Simulated assay, not measured.
Amino acid sequence: MSKVKKLTKGQQRRIKANHDNRLHGKTTKNKDKVQWEDDDLGTPQQGVIISRFGQHADVESELGEIYRCNLRRSIGSLVCGDKVLWRLGRETQHSITGIIEAVHERDSVLSRPDVYDGVKPIAANISQILIVSSVLPVFNSDIIDRYLVAAEQTGITPVIVLNKTDLLDSISAEEQENIAKQLKIYQDIGYQVLYASSKSRDGISELKMQLAQHTSIFVGQSGVGKSTLVNALMPDLGILTKEVSDNSGLGQHTTTVARLYHFNEGGDLIDSPGIREFGLWHLTPEQVCHGFVEFSEFLGLCKFRDCKHQTDPGCALIAAAENEQINPARLASFQRILASLNDNKLTSRFNN
């Protein structure tokens, strides 16, 4: 993982100013062109954000109709899944049909750090996170661990999904064994693991049952097949998908804007843009540690109170790994995340 260079104070001030301007609609590019008077608007009604586009958002009414709306400048944050109070305009102006007045308090929010925007919300009011990995591109347990830490911080239930199981026969027996061992580690900890293939449709019915009656979000690296899974679950949508790049072996971005979809059988799904890394540098080492749930019984038992859990003498986590009370692979992943916090920690430029 490449290091993020610390910004100068001047750069920090400019980024903060740009960030504030975007939040409050002060930039010329994003300034509302449609000015609504109270007499031009209908009565307030409830809605949910289906998708967000800069200073506009698609709102679904209680009747299931979708309207593109402006945002009041007082709204500082709005993401897919937010529940809002909005008003319909008497007439459509420049394709805008109404305005979002307020955002209700969120039951949950999934966020990730952004170099320019600080901690950036991805989706709101979700009840489970489906962490999608796949046989190809190369199975990456470190990415899964990062998402698990994020999920544990929010209190949202995580479920691990191994996608593209039809490709298992195309990799070596050693690679298959490694994937099986890694997934068993998660199962032994207590996490639910599902298996699916959009091509063979293995596991699709089980996945639908898991999604029913929940508001879920698919997360994971680009190319693991999130959008393909959505197509398999909701074939009428026809979401654009791409294959893994032959040159780089990395996934290619397909979904560009997070969007909420409804299942006929019940339940909602937010399809979010794929990302190749999920930084955790906005978290403290203690928060990361609590994200590894099996470590809990050993916390506070280290010889030194300021133990860094790397090569420190008397580290209770290292001793637990040596005694096979926690899996050494998970400890190594935890140590890599801690090291990345030190490498990539940015100054708290948005706090002043």
Rank of each mutant, 00 (worst) to 15 (best):
L280S: 10
Q287E: 15
E265S: 13
I275Y: 13
G266Y: 06
V288E: 08
V288A: 02
H282W: 01
V293M: 06
I270Q: 07
G267C: 10
E265P: 00
Q287A: 12
S272A: 15
R276T: 00
V293N: 00
G279T: 09
G279P: 10
E294C: 03
T284I: 01
E277K: 07
V288H: 07
W281F: 13
Q287L: 05
F292T: 07
G266Q: 02
H290M: 03
I270W: 12
D268H: 14
L269M: 07
L280V: 12
F292M: 09
G266M: 11
S272G: 03
P273F: 04
T284V: 03
E297H: 06
V288T: 07
G266V: 04
L269N: 03
S296M: 09
D268F: 13
R276H: 10
G291F: 10
W281L: 01
V288Q: 09
P285Y: 12
D271R: 07
E297Y: 00
H262V: 07
G291I: 04
V288R: 08
G291N: 02
R276L: 03
T284K: 12
L283Q: 04
E294A: 01
T284M: 04
P273Q: 07
C289I: 00
H262N: 11
I270P: 10
C289Y: 00
L269T: 12
E277F: 06
L283G: 11
S272L: 15
C289R: 15
I275K: 04
E294P: 06
H262C: 00
S272T: 15
I270F: 13
E265N: 11
F292H: 01
E265T: 14
H282I: 02
F292G: 05
D268C: 13
E297G: 00
H282Q: 12
F278A: 02
F292L: 06
Q287H: 08
H282R: 03
F278M: 06
G291C: 09
H262M: 05
C289T: 14
F263I: 14
P285F: 08
W281M: 02
G279S: 12
P273V: 10
G267E: 08
E286Q: 14
F295H: 05
E277S: 12
D271E: 13
T284D: 11
S272P: 02
E294S: 12
S296W: 08
G267R: 08
H282F: 03
P285G: 11
L280Y: 00
L269C: 09
G274F: 08
F295P: 02
S272D: 05
G274V: 02
S272R: 03
W281E: 06
C289A: 15
L283Y: 13
F278W: 08
W281Q: 09
P285S: 05
G279M: 02
G267Y: 08
G267S: 05
I270M: 08
N264D: 14
R276V: 09
P273A: 10
